[in-house]
Amino acid sequence: MTDEVPNRPRADPTFEHRRHGDRKHDSGREDREEWVWVLDYLPYGRETDNRPVYQKKPLIHALGDNKLILMELIPVEDKIPPVHIKTHIGNRDEEYVERVKSRIPYDDLSHGAVLELPLVLEDYVKENEDRFIQFFSKAEPLSMRQNSLELLPGVGKKLMLDVLEESKKGPYEGFEDLKARVPALHNPEKLIVQRIIEEMKGGQKYYVFAAPPSRSMLNPEEGGSGSGSGNNGGRQGHRGSGGGGYGRRRE
């Protein structure tokens, strides 16, 4: 008999916990990435590209602002984007990105991008504090035995119960309010960043913040490395609000 909670109410559609494999495809503008955070600029493309230097083209490794997907981009000619900048994809003369080349898995990130990713995500989480704090205020059960808060690294039963009990007194107003009311939770922002990176690496039972790897990335023989538009899983929200709505469970 399954331990999943039947007909579980959705406290907040921003963090809708779906099971990995229960894929729902979106369409339209909200499913596309329009803004990205630059993680690394590769003037000669990937390090694994063995072609002669004159044949290599610059690339950008970036984080999508809409769905938190990792992307490989074609830069505008003769423009070098600063690392850590948030920029628009195409159609703006002052921007750095011409177009999306593909979605890429975590393991394909350049060394520089891997180092920059936690720093960018920290800024991303703080920029979207009002949204991410709802994860703590409206934490949902994943099953009869587990709450979504326990997906965060280092959060056990006792700390989870402390957060839930305190939230009954009223929603958390921000990270500082959360830390003041639950002193044992020292740095919730970093816990979210760590969880996001774990989800980006794949192999998770649940995906809460980031899009799960596409089938084409998990099984290359199914074709390609995925789409830069991120058509993998339903997200509810809008551009720039953060990449949630992916809580899926692996079948």
Rank of each mutant, 00 (worst) to 15 (best):
K56H: 06
E127R: 14
V125A: 01
D40Y: 05
M160G: 00
P13N: 14
L218A: 10
D107V: 12
G203A: 00
Y207F: 15
D93T: 14
L185I: 09
S148G: 08
L159G: 02
F209Y: 06
H61N: 04
Y207M: 03
P52Y: 06
F209M: 07
V182Y: 10
L149D: 00
D130K: 13
V182W: 09
N147K: 05
S143P: 06
P220S: 07
G21Y: 08
F132Y: 15
K101G: 04
G28S: 08
A139T: 08
S148Y: 03
S143R: 07
E150M: 12
D107K: 12
R145Y: 11
M200Y: 06
P118V: 00
E98K: 13
E166G: 04
V83R: 05
H61E: 02
W35E: 12
K24W: 14
D78Q: 08
Y54M: 10
H88E: 05
E222K: 04
D177A: 02
V163I: 15
R250C: 09
G242K: 03
R32H: 15
P9D: 07
K190Y: 12
T2C: 09
S110L: 06
G242C: 08
Y246H: 13
K168G: 03
G234T: 14
L59F: 01
E30T: 13
V38H: 01
G90H: 03
G224N: 13
P220C: 07
N147E: 09
E176N: 11
Y206D: 07
G45A: 10
E47V: 08
R99A: 13
W37I: 07
E72S: 03
G174K: 01
L59K: 03
R19K: 13
G156C: 01
D26N: 09
H25I: 15
D107T: 12
L115H: 10
I104L: 06
Q194W: 13
K79N: 01
R18H: 15
R23E: 11
G224M: 08
W37L: 07
K57E: 13
R46L: 10
K157D: 12
A139D: 05
D93V: 14
K79D: 01
R99M: 09
K157M: 09
D26R: 09
V97N: 06
G233W: 01
I69K: 02
I74C: 07
P43A: 11
G243K: 01
